[in-house]
């Protein structure tokens, strides 16, 4: 294999950018699943975030408001899911899938008049001379603020789940909602909060696609990133830092396979494109093989509806 023609500094910098949408969506979904809710509508929330973020950024001229708009859009869409599954006790898998289909259609409708427009540019964070350092410069100091935000949010979620009272309650709700309820916690309200956080993160991830990575609006722009985010949560066995690792791995392989083609490598790209999914399947097999510690990571109440009278 010929790696000599690849520039690894550029590659790492590129994979950090390519991973942002799936990382944001995955960390949001991680919180949702740790609260015991399985929301398969990540793709739908991402694309709604992409279109809302795009519209907000074009209308206001501010990329920051664009990301905010994307987060709000994703959160509002997730509210539909929350009402259906938490209040009306609809099946979570079916509702999540429906949410994706609905989101794809609605985004196409909302985006009709925004095709071909250009969003305001999200600038790089000015680190001054630091960005000119060799190797570390492009990797650590050459990005826009959302890249740093995505890492920060991983750290916050990790800390909140591990060290705060809120995190403990959230995990309790996800592990055993009946017990949490009997202790006096409002299971539905906590899950609602988690679902909306998940929606906001997915929406922001979507906005990153339409505002930075592509940057324009076209139908179906997220192209399956939401499904990859779902796979990453499982791959990460519901641990925040592993979400970061998984996102860089998945994002990295996408960038690597394109770069290897551009550099004229001889290995068939299909193998590389396949790799993340193979690893996910492998992780699932190891997890479900029983006794190991990994199997204990899945929240015990994942995907189960809760009603106080049961």
């Amino acid at each position: 294999m010929d790696f000599t023609s690849l520039n690894f500094v550029v590659l790492i910098a590129a994979l950090m950018v390519a991973s942002v949408p799936i990382m944001l969506a995955a960390i949001g979904e991680l919180v949702v699943e740790r609260a015991g809710v399985l929301n398969l509508g990540v793709e739908g929330m991402m694309i709604i975030g992409a279109v809302c973020g795009f519209i907000a950024a074009v209308e206001t001229g501010s990329p920051f408001l664009g990301f905010l708009g994307g987060a709000v859009g994703g959160a509002v869409l997730s509210l539909i899911f929350a009402v259906l599954t938490q209040t009306l006790l609809a099946n979570q898998v079916a509702t999540g899938l429906a949410l994706t289909l609905f989101g794809l259609g609605l985004s196409s409708l909302l985006g009709q008049n925004y095709v071909g427009m250009k969003p305001p540019v999200t600038g790089k964070v000015p680190f001054g001379p630091l960005a000119d350092l060799p190797v570390v410069g492009p990797i650590l100091f050459g990005h826009d603020w959302v890249v740093y935000f995505s890492i920060l949010i991983i750290a916050i979620v990790w800390w909140a789940l591990k060290a705060t009272r809120l995190g403990l309650i959230l995990r309790a709700v996800g592990e055993n909602h009946d017990a949490a309820h009997s202790l006096g916690y409002n299971v539905r309200r906590i899950r609602l909060g988690a679902i909306m956080f998940g929606g906001a993160m997915a929406g922001m991830g979507g906005a990153y696609v339409s505002l930075v990575r592509v940057p324009q609006w076209t139908d179906g722009i997220t192209a399956g990133a939401g499904w990859i985010a779902l796979a990453i949560v499982v791959f990460a066995s519901w641990r925040p830092w592993r979400v970061m690792l998984g996102s860089y791995l998945f994002g990295g392989i996408t960038v690597l396979q394109l770069n290897m083609q551009a550099a004229g490598s001889a290995i068939p790209v299909q193998y590389l494109s396949m790799a993340p999914y193979l690893i996910t399947i492998l992780v699932l097999v190891i997890m479900s093989s029983g006794k190991g510690r990994a199997a204990l990571n899945a929240p015990a109440s994942l995907g189960q509806n809760f009603h106080a009278t049961r």
Binding site: Q216, A225, L258, Q261, A262
Partner: peptide, 25 residues
């Protein structure tokens, strides 16, 4: 000339990524 195949006619995110990869090279 460097050729990158993306296995799609229409996938804006992938097209953008492929363009970036070519620029990086």
């Amino acid at each position: 000339i460097s050729v990158v195949w993306i296995s799609a006619w229409f996938d804006p995110a992938k097209e953008a990524d492929a363009t970036k990869a070519l620029l990086d090279q």
